[in-house]
Amino acid sequence: MEKPATDRINEKEAVIVIRNVYKSFGNNHVLRGIDLDLYRGENVVVLGRSGTGKSVLIKIISGLLKQDSGTVKVLGQEVDRLNDRQLQELRLKLGFSFQSSALYDSMTVRENLEFPLVRNQKHLSRKEVEDAIDRVLDAVGLIQTKHQMPSELSGGQRKRIGIARTLILRPEIMLYDEPTAGLDPITCIEINNLINKVQEEFKTSSIIITHDLTCAKATGDRVAMLLDGKFIKQGTFDEVFNSNEERIKSFYNYNFIE
């Protein structure tokens, strides 16, 4: 199902601006001159095959990796020029949902959510912390798992809790790394709906990294196609996939044959 157009996108206010970004690992040139804007209220899907540097891109945006050259501005700040304290402050406005969910497996779901909250908002009372935890668990529809360990959850539930853990800090920007990877089709639809719900309810702007066209179509206001380290096409889903570019066609066909 294609995502209906949203009127909340503010094309004058770019929250992420990426210009001419290069990144290599030894002789492997992963990103070769990337340009991308993310506007406030918008969901941008970065599509591409595995190993094309999609995850590297969002790790650069979040400051987990540094680009070799080029600039990455998040909310007006150049990420690679920030000191530790500034980077930490910026990260409070940036939510990162990992492909593997990256839940702390020695903690319960409640403790996973409490962990970043109590360390970043020390003024909160015990009741306020519990309320915030209940609120985000309710938003992802998993309030019943509050006292369970991550090992007791299914793949889809783990993804949802991973998203809840980022939402608890009320980020302005969400970065999703392969949110539907390894999930069954019905759970994929639930995750896609959750991404759209987060955009609406939490007023976030998001970059969604995926190679799943169904996810791209359902969640993306705009799609950017990454191939050989560069964006070869950007636009709405239909604009991108109606193009005559052979590589895009083959990606499209391969995805549906797969």
């Binding site: 979040s62 987990l64 939510g95 839940l103 702390y104 360390r119």
Partner: peptide, 21 residues
């Protein structure tokens, strides 16, 4: 083993991006 497994399952990265040292 504990910290190593947290590293390879991105739990350490998850702490960093949620502004925890």
């Amino acid at each position: 083993a504990e910290i190593g497994s947290m590293k390879v399952t991105e739990q350490i990265d998850a702490m960093e991006v949620s502004a925890v040292n």
